[in-house]
Computed example of a mutant assay.
Amino acid sequence: MAAMRTWALLLLWFRTSTQGKTPDVHITCVFSEDCVLPCSFQPASDQVIRWLRQEVVIYTLQLEDGEDGEDGEDGEDGEDGEDDQSEHEQYDGRASLFPNLVSHGNASLRLTKCGPRDRGRYRCQVNSTAGLHEAQVIVRVEAPVRSLSLSLELSRLDGYEELKCATRDVYPAPQIAWATDPPTAGGLRPNTRMLADEQGRYNVESRLRKLKDQSQLTYICRVNSSYGTQVWTASLTERAISWTERRNLTVPCHAPPHLPNPSLSWSFTNHNKPAIILTYNSKPQQSSVSTLWKERVVFDPAKVASGDGSLWLVEPNRLEHGGVYTCVYASLRTTHTVVTRVTMTSDSGEDAHVQEKHCGRTECCYSPGSFEQRKNCTSRQDVSHGVRYGVNDL
Protein backbone atom coordinates (compact mmCIF):
# COMPACT_ATOMS: atom_id res chain seq x y z
CA MET A 1 0.00 0.00 0.00
CA ALA A 2 2.81 2.41 0.85
CA ALA A 3 4.42 1.74 -2.52
CA MET A 4 1.14 2.45 -4.33
CA ARG A 5 0.69 5.75 -2.47
CA THR A 6 4.25 6.73 -3.43
CA TRP A 7 3.59 6.06 -7.13
CA ALA A 8 0.31 7.97 -6.94
CA LEU A 9 2.04 11.02 -5.42
CA LEU A 10 4.77 10.90 -8.05
CA LEU A 11 2.18 10.77 -10.84
CA LEU A 12 0.26 13.70 -9.31
CA TRP A 13 3.49 15.73 -9.03
CA PHE A 14 4.40 14.97 -12.65
CA ARG A 15 1.00 16.07 -13.93
CA THR A 16 1.10 19.27 -11.86
CA SER A 17 4.66 20.17 -12.84
CA THR A 18 4.02 19.68 -16.56
CA GLN A 19 0.64 21.44 -16.65
CA GLY A 20 0.74 24.42 -19.01
CA LYS A 21 4.07 23.43 -20.57
CA THR A 22 4.65 22.78 -24.25
CA PRO A 23 7.44 20.91 -26.04
CA ASP A 24 10.66 22.83 -26.72
CA VAL A 25 10.72 24.77 -29.97
CA HIS A 26 13.97 25.09 -31.95
CA ILE A 27 14.38 28.06 -34.28
CA THR A 28 17.25 29.50 -36.31
CA CYS A 29 17.53 33.28 -36.51
CA VAL A 30 19.33 34.91 -39.42
CA PHE A 31 22.29 37.11 -38.53
CA SER A 32 21.41 40.87 -38.42
CA GLU A 33 17.74 40.20 -39.22
CA ASP A 34 14.62 40.25 -37.05
CA CYS A 35 13.47 37.00 -35.48
CA VAL A 36 10.24 35.91 -33.78
CA LEU A 37 10.27 33.51 -30.83
CA PRO A 38 6.84 31.82 -30.74
CA CYS A 39 4.68 31.56 -27.62
CA SER A 40 0.92 30.91 -27.50
CA PHE A 41 -1.35 30.52 -24.49
CA GLN A 42 -5.01 30.44 -23.41
CA PRO A 43 -6.21 34.06 -22.97
CA ALA A 44 -7.47 35.04 -19.51
CA SER A 45 -7.53 38.04 -17.15
CA ASP A 46 -4.74 39.77 -15.22
CA GLN A 47 -1.99 38.56 -17.50
CA VAL A 48 1.69 38.97 -16.73
CA ILE A 49 4.00 37.92 -19.55
CA ARG A 50 7.69 37.40 -18.95
CA TRP A 51 10.44 36.30 -21.26
CA LEU A 52 13.61 34.88 -19.74
CA ARG A 53 16.93 33.96 -21.34
CA GLN A 54 19.09 31.53 -19.42
CA GLU A 55 16.74 32.15 -16.46
CA VAL A 56 17.33 35.93 -16.52
CA VAL A 57 14.25 38.10 -17.13
CA ILE A 58 14.73 40.15 -20.30
CA TYR A 59 11.20 41.42 -21.00
CA THR A 60 7.95 41.91 -19.04
CA LEU A 61 4.43 42.89 -20.04
CA GLN A 62 1.66 43.28 -17.45
CA LEU A 63 -2.02 43.64 -18.37
CA GLU A 64 -4.60 44.22 -15.66
CA ASP A 65 -8.18 42.99 -15.81
CA GLY A 66 -10.07 44.56 -18.70
CA GLU A 67 -6.99 45.58 -20.70
CA ASP A 68 -6.43 43.85 -24.00
CA GLY A 69 -3.26 45.45 -25.34
CA GLU A 70 -4.90 46.31 -28.65
CA ASP A 71 -4.19 50.03 -28.60
CA GLY A 72 -1.06 49.68 -30.74
CA GLU A 73 -0.49 48.46 -34.25
CA ASP A 74 1.07 45.08 -34.99
CA GLY A 75 4.55 45.07 -33.54
CA GLU A 76 4.12 48.42 -31.72
CA ASP A 77 3.61 49.12 -28.06
CA GLY A 78 0.08 49.92 -26.94
CA GLU A 79 -0.92 52.88 -24.81
CA ASP A 80 -2.43 53.26 -21.32
CA GLY A 81 -2.85 50.16 -19.20
CA GLU A 82 0.24 48.30 -20.39
CA ASP A 83 3.38 48.06 -18.35
CA ASP A 84 6.02 46.61 -20.68
CA GLN A 85 9.75 46.93 -20.55
CA SER A 86 13.02 45.34 -21.49
CA GLU A 87 14.85 44.33 -18.34
CA HIS A 88 18.29 43.68 -19.78
CA GLU A 89 20.52 46.21 -21.52
CA GLN A 90 21.39 43.68 -24.24
CA TYR A 91 17.72 43.71 -25.30
CA ASP A 92 16.88 47.36 -24.64
CA GLY A 93 15.08 48.61 -27.73
CA ARG A 94 15.49 45.22 -29.45
CA ALA A 95 12.80 43.10 -27.72
CA SER A 96 9.06 43.59 -28.08
CA LEU A 97 5.77 41.72 -28.17
CA PHE A 98 2.86 42.15 -30.58
CA PRO A 99 0.45 44.01 -28.25
CA ASN A 100 -2.65 43.71 -30.42
CA LEU A 101 -2.18 39.93 -30.53
CA VAL A 102 -1.75 39.34 -26.79
CA SER A 103 -5.50 39.20 -26.13
CA HIS A 104 -5.71 36.45 -28.73
CA GLY A 105 -3.18 34.31 -26.87
CA ASN A 106 -0.04 35.32 -28.74
CA ALA A 107 2.93 36.27 -26.55
CA SER A 108 5.61 35.83 -29.22
CA LEU A 109 8.77 37.86 -28.71
CA ARG A 110 10.38 39.77 -31.57
CA LEU A 111 14.12 40.35 -31.49
CA THR A 112 15.65 42.83 -33.92
CA LYS A 113 19.12 42.62 -35.47
CA CYS A 114 19.98 39.20 -34.09
CA GLY A 115 23.60 38.33 -33.35
CA PRO A 116 25.72 35.64 -31.68
CA ARG A 117 24.86 36.89 -28.17
CA ASP A 118 21.19 36.03 -28.76
CA ARG A 119 21.83 32.29 -28.88
CA GLY A 120 20.56 30.16 -26.04
CA ARG A 121 17.48 28.90 -24.19
CA TYR A 122 14.51 31.23 -23.77
CA ARG A 123 11.45 30.72 -21.60
CA CYS A 124 8.06 32.32 -22.18
CA GLN A 125 6.07 32.57 -18.96
CA VAL A 126 2.42 33.70 -18.85
CA ASN A 127 0.76 34.04 -15.45
CA SER A 128 -2.99 34.78 -15.38
CA THR A 129 -6.24 33.79 -13.72
CA ALA A 130 -6.10 30.63 -15.82
CA GLY A 131 -2.83 29.61 -14.17
CA LEU A 132 0.80 29.46 -15.27
CA HIS A 133 1.78 28.67 -18.85
CA GLU A 134 5.40 28.14 -19.91
CA ALA A 135 7.11 27.44 -23.21
CA GLN A 136 10.79 26.86 -24.02
CA VAL A 137 12.43 28.17 -27.18
CA ILE A 138 15.96 27.14 -28.20
CA VAL A 139 17.54 29.83 -30.38
CA ARG A 140 20.52 29.53 -32.63
CA VAL A 141 21.83 32.29 -34.89
CA GLU A 142 23.23 31.73 -38.36
CA ALA A 143 24.73 33.84 -41.13
CA PRO A 144 24.32 31.36 -43.99
CA VAL A 145 26.80 30.80 -46.79
CA ARG A 146 25.66 32.91 -49.74
CA SER A 147 28.52 32.33 -52.18
CA LEU A 148 31.57 30.12 -52.66
CA SER A 149 34.46 30.74 -55.04
CA LEU A 150 37.26 28.46 -56.19
CA SER A 151 40.13 29.92 -58.19
CA LEU A 152 43.64 29.06 -59.32
CA GLU A 153 46.35 31.48 -58.24
CA LEU A 154 50.11 31.86 -58.17
CA SER A 155 51.57 31.90 -54.66
CA ARG A 156 53.33 35.19 -53.96
CA LEU A 157 55.74 33.60 -51.51
CA ASP A 158 56.84 30.37 -53.17
CA GLY A 159 55.82 30.86 -56.79
CA TYR A 160 53.84 27.61 -57.06
CA GLU A 161 50.23 27.35 -58.19
CA GLU A 162 47.55 26.90 -55.56
CA LEU A 163 43.79 26.70 -55.40
CA LYS A 164 41.89 29.16 -53.22
CA CYS A 165 38.44 28.31 -51.86
CA ALA A 166 36.75 31.29 -50.19
CA THR A 167 33.49 32.45 -48.64
CA ARG A 168 32.60 35.52 -46.58
CA ASP A 169 30.34 36.69 -43.75
CA VAL A 170 29.47 33.25 -42.37
CA TYR A 171 28.43 32.36 -38.81
CA PRO A 172 29.17 30.08 -37.04
CA ALA A 173 32.51 29.09 -38.56
CA PRO A 174 31.84 26.45 -41.27
CA GLN A 175 33.66 23.20 -42.00
CA ILE A 176 35.90 22.97 -45.08
CA ALA A 177 36.83 19.74 -46.85
CA TRP A 178 38.93 19.10 -49.99
CA ALA A 179 38.86 16.19 -52.42
CA THR A 180 39.97 15.30 -55.95
CA ASP A 181 38.36 13.39 -58.78
CA PRO A 182 39.75 10.83 -59.37
CA PRO A 183 40.96 10.40 -55.77
CA THR A 184 44.70 10.73 -55.18
CA ALA A 185 47.01 8.70 -52.97
CA GLY A 186 48.04 10.46 -49.78
CA GLY A 187 46.15 13.11 -47.87
CA LEU A 188 45.57 16.66 -49.07
CA ARG A 189 47.07 19.37 -46.89
CA PRO A 190 45.14 22.61 -47.24
CA ASN A 191 45.92 25.75 -45.26
CA THR A 192 42.67 27.20 -43.92
CA ARG A 193 42.20 30.58 -42.23
CA MET A 194 39.04 31.85 -40.56
CA LEU A 195 38.97 35.46 -39.43
CA ALA A 196 36.01 36.98 -37.56
CA ASP A 197 34.94 40.57 -38.16
CA GLU A 198 33.67 42.97 -35.49
CA GLN A 199 30.20 41.46 -35.63
CA GLY A 200 31.48 37.90 -35.29
CA ARG A 201 30.98 36.76 -38.87
CA TYR A 202 33.78 34.72 -40.43
CA ASN A 203 35.70 35.29 -43.63
CA VAL A 204 37.05 31.90 -44.68
CA GLU A 205 39.94 31.21 -47.02
CA SER A 206 41.36 27.74 -47.66
CA ARG A 207 44.36 27.21 -49.94
CA LEU A 208 45.57 23.94 -51.44
CA ARG A 209 48.83 23.54 -53.32
CA LYS A 210 48.31 22.17 -56.82
CA LEU A 211 49.58 18.61 -57.08
CA LYS A 212 52.49 17.98 -59.43
CA ASP A 213 52.15 15.73 -62.46
CA GLN A 214 48.38 15.47 -61.98
CA SER A 215 47.07 17.46 -64.93
CA GLN A 216 43.75 15.63 -65.30
CA LEU A 217 42.50 16.18 -61.75
CA THR A 218 39.32 17.93 -60.74
CA TYR A 219 39.75 19.72 -57.40
CA ILE A 220 36.68 19.86 -55.15
CA CYS A 221 36.09 22.15 -52.17
CA ARG A 222 33.04 21.56 -49.95
CA VAL A 223 31.77 23.92 -47.27
CA ASN A 224 29.36 22.59 -44.64
CA SER A 225 27.52 24.98 -42.35
CA SER A 226 28.08 24.41 -38.65
CA TYR A 227 24.42 23.51 -38.10
CA GLY A 228 24.33 21.17 -41.11
CA THR A 229 21.70 23.26 -42.89
CA GLN A 230 23.81 23.90 -46.01
CA VAL A 231 26.39 22.18 -48.20
CA TRP A 232 28.14 24.23 -50.89
CA THR A 233 30.40 22.65 -53.50
CA ALA A 234 32.93 24.26 -55.84
CA SER A 235 35.06 22.29 -58.29
CA LEU A 236 37.80 23.24 -60.74
CA THR A 237 39.41 21.50 -63.70
CA GLU A 238 42.46 22.76 -65.58
CA ARG A 239 43.58 21.88 -69.08
CA ALA A 240 45.94 23.17 -71.78
CA ILE A 241 45.50 23.47 -75.54
CA SER A 242 48.21 24.13 -78.12
CA TRP A 243 46.75 25.42 -81.38
CA THR A 244 47.61 27.01 -84.68
CA GLU A 245 46.21 30.48 -85.14
CA ARG A 246 43.43 31.16 -87.67
CA ARG A 247 42.16 27.61 -87.27
CA ASN A 248 38.72 27.50 -85.71
CA LEU A 249 39.00 26.22 -82.15
CA THR A 250 36.64 24.53 -79.70
CA VAL A 251 37.34 25.39 -76.03
CA PRO A 252 35.52 22.66 -74.09
CA CYS A 253 33.49 23.16 -70.93
CA HIS A 254 31.51 20.32 -69.42
CA ALA A 255 29.61 20.55 -66.14
CA PRO A 256 28.94 17.84 -63.53
CA PRO A 257 25.60 16.06 -64.01
CA HIS A 258 22.32 17.12 -62.45
CA LEU A 259 22.78 20.89 -62.25
CA PRO A 260 19.25 22.41 -62.27
CA ASN A 261 18.77 25.64 -64.22
CA PRO A 262 22.47 26.43 -64.54
CA SER A 263 24.00 29.74 -65.51
CA LEU A 264 27.17 29.97 -67.58
CA SER A 265 29.88 32.57 -67.94
CA TRP A 266 32.99 32.73 -70.08
CA SER A 267 35.92 35.08 -69.46
CA PHE A 268 39.35 35.57 -71.00
CA THR A 269 42.63 36.74 -69.49
CA ASN A 270 45.59 37.90 -71.57
CA HIS A 271 48.55 39.80 -70.13
CA ASN A 272 46.76 39.86 -66.74
CA LYS A 273 43.81 41.73 -68.24
CA PRO A 274 40.54 39.85 -67.61
CA ALA A 275 37.53 40.38 -69.86
CA ILE A 276 34.02 38.91 -69.98
CA ILE A 277 33.20 37.04 -73.19
CA LEU A 278 29.60 36.03 -72.55
CA THR A 279 27.04 35.13 -69.90
CA TYR A 280 24.01 32.87 -70.19
CA ASN A 281 21.15 32.04 -67.82
CA SER A 282 19.18 28.94 -68.74
CA LYS A 283 16.05 29.70 -66.70
CA PRO A 284 15.01 32.83 -68.63
CA GLN A 285 17.19 31.64 -71.54
CA GLN A 286 18.92 34.97 -71.81
CA SER A 287 22.46 35.56 -73.03
CA SER A 288 24.78 38.54 -73.33
CA VAL A 289 27.92 38.66 -75.44
CA SER A 290 30.65 41.28 -75.20
CA THR A 291 30.88 43.57 -78.20
CA LEU A 292 34.57 42.77 -78.60
CA TRP A 293 33.81 39.05 -78.98
CA LYS A 294 30.64 39.05 -81.06
CA GLU A 295 32.56 38.44 -84.26
CA ARG A 296 34.67 35.66 -82.78
CA VAL A 297 32.51 33.30 -80.74
CA VAL A 298 29.80 30.71 -81.30
CA PHE A 299 28.13 28.73 -78.55
CA ASP A 300 25.07 26.51 -78.33
CA PRO A 301 22.54 27.62 -75.68
CA ALA A 302 20.48 24.47 -76.19
CA LYS A 303 23.33 22.33 -74.86
CA VAL A 304 24.02 24.36 -71.72
CA ALA A 305 21.27 22.69 -69.68
CA SER A 306 22.67 19.24 -70.56
CA GLY A 307 26.13 20.23 -69.33
CA ASP A 308 27.91 21.31 -72.50
CA GLY A 309 28.89 24.97 -72.44
CA SER A 310 31.75 24.69 -74.91
CA LEU A 311 32.86 27.81 -76.76
CA TRP A 312 33.89 27.92 -80.42
CA LEU A 313 36.38 30.53 -81.60
CA VAL A 314 36.31 31.62 -85.21
CA GLU A 315 39.77 32.15 -86.77
CA PRO A 316 41.57 33.24 -83.57
CA ASN A 317 44.98 34.87 -83.79
CA ARG A 318 47.78 34.26 -81.33
CA LEU A 319 48.34 37.88 -80.30
CA GLU A 320 44.74 38.61 -79.34
CA HIS A 321 43.33 35.20 -78.43
CA GLY A 322 46.15 33.28 -76.84
CA GLY A 323 45.63 33.23 -73.06
CA VAL A 324 43.45 31.76 -70.33
CA TYR A 325 39.79 30.96 -70.95
CA THR A 326 37.64 30.42 -67.86
CA CYS A 327 34.23 28.79 -67.98
CA VAL A 328 32.04 28.83 -64.85
CA TYR A 329 28.91 26.72 -64.50
CA ALA A 330 26.75 27.79 -61.54
CA SER A 331 23.63 26.34 -60.00
CA LEU A 332 22.07 26.20 -56.54
CA ARG A 333 25.01 25.94 -54.08
CA THR A 334 27.21 24.43 -56.78
CA THR A 335 29.83 25.91 -59.12
CA HIS A 336 32.15 24.19 -61.57
CA THR A 337 35.07 26.03 -63.17
CA VAL A 338 37.10 24.96 -66.19
CA VAL A 339 40.36 26.84 -66.74
CA THR A 340 41.86 26.35 -70.22
CA ARG A 341 45.26 27.74 -71.16
CA VAL A 342 45.45 28.26 -74.91
CA THR A 343 48.80 28.78 -76.59
CA MET A 344 48.94 29.48 -80.32
CA THR A 345 51.60 29.22 -82.96
CA SER A 346 51.72 31.24 -86.16
CA ASP A 347 49.68 30.17 -89.16
CA SER A 348 51.75 28.41 -91.80
CA GLY A 349 49.12 27.85 -94.44
CA GLU A 350 45.54 27.84 -95.57
CA ASP A 351 43.05 26.98 -92.85
CA ALA A 352 42.23 23.39 -93.57
CA HIS A 353 39.12 23.57 -91.43
CA VAL A 354 37.40 26.24 -93.49
CA GLN A 355 35.74 24.79 -96.54
CA GLU A 356 33.11 25.91 -98.95
CA LYS A 357 29.72 24.24 -98.87
CA HIS A 358 26.74 24.58 -101.15
CA CYS A 359 25.27 27.37 -99.02
CA GLY A 360 23.37 30.46 -100.01
CA ARG A 361 25.30 33.64 -100.56
CA THR A 362 24.44 35.00 -97.11
CA GLU A 363 24.28 31.71 -95.28
CA CYS A 364 26.91 30.08 -93.05
CA CYS A 365 27.05 26.31 -92.76
CA TYR A 366 28.42 25.22 -89.40
CA SER A 367 29.16 21.95 -87.77
CA PRO A 368 30.55 22.05 -84.23
CA GLY A 369 33.49 19.83 -85.12
CA SER A 370 34.83 21.64 -88.17
CA PHE A 371 33.23 25.10 -88.18
CA GLU A 372 32.74 24.90 -91.93
CA GLN A 373 31.69 28.22 -93.26
CA ARG A 374 31.21 30.32 -96.37
CA LYS A 375 32.52 33.84 -96.75
CA ASN A 376 30.45 37.00 -96.46
CA CYS A 377 28.02 35.90 -93.74
CA THR A 378 25.29 38.04 -92.29
CA SER A 379 26.17 40.08 -89.20
CA ARG A 380 24.09 37.90 -86.84
CA GLN A 381 22.47 34.63 -87.65
CA ASP A 382 20.99 31.60 -85.94
CA VAL A 383 22.47 28.37 -87.24
CA SER A 384 21.45 24.77 -86.80
CA HIS A 385 24.02 23.98 -84.11
CA GLY A 386 24.11 27.20 -82.13
CA VAL A 387 23.91 30.98 -82.13
CA ARG A 388 26.38 32.85 -84.27
CA TYR A 389 27.31 36.37 -83.16
CA GLY A 390 28.23 38.92 -85.81
CA VAL A 391 30.79 37.15 -87.97
CA ASN A 392 31.31 39.40 -90.99
CA ASP A 393 33.65 38.81 -93.91
CA LEU A 394 35.67 36.11 -92.19
Rank of each mutant, 00 (worst) to 15 (best):
Q373Y: 15
E350D: 03
Y280F: 08
D92C: 07
N127A: 06
R15K: 14
H385D: 11
Q286D: 01
K357G: 14
N191L: 04
F31N: 06
I176Q: 00
S225W: 07
Y389N: 02
C114I: 15
C29M: 14
C253N: 00
T180E: 02
A143R: 15
E320F: 04
A130F: 09
S226E: 08
S149F: 00
R361K: 14
V145W: 02
Q175I: 03
Q47P: 03
A130P: 04
R380C: 11
T184C: 04
D351V: 00
A173Q: 11
S367G: 10
E55W: 13
D71L: 10
Q62R: 15
Q175H: 00
R239L: 05
D351I: 03
S32D: 15
G69P: 05
T129Q: 06
S206D: 00
G309P: 01
Q381T: 09
V391T: 08
P252W: 08
Y227W: 11
S348T: 00
D300T: 07
E315N: 11
Q175V: 09
E363G: 02
P301G: 02
V137P: 07
G186N: 09
T229A: 05
L319M: 00
R168C: 12
P274V: 12
D68F: 03
S155F: 12
F31A: 12
H271I: 05
T16I: 15
L208R: 04
E295K: 15
E350Q: 06
R333V: 00
Q199H: 11
H258Q: 04
S32T: 15
H104G: 12
W312F: 02
A185P: 02
T279E: 08
S263D: 02
N317V: 06
S263L: 02
C221A: 11
C364K: 14
V223Y: 01
N100T: 02
V126A: 11
L63A: 09
D382V: 06
H321S: 14
T237I: 07
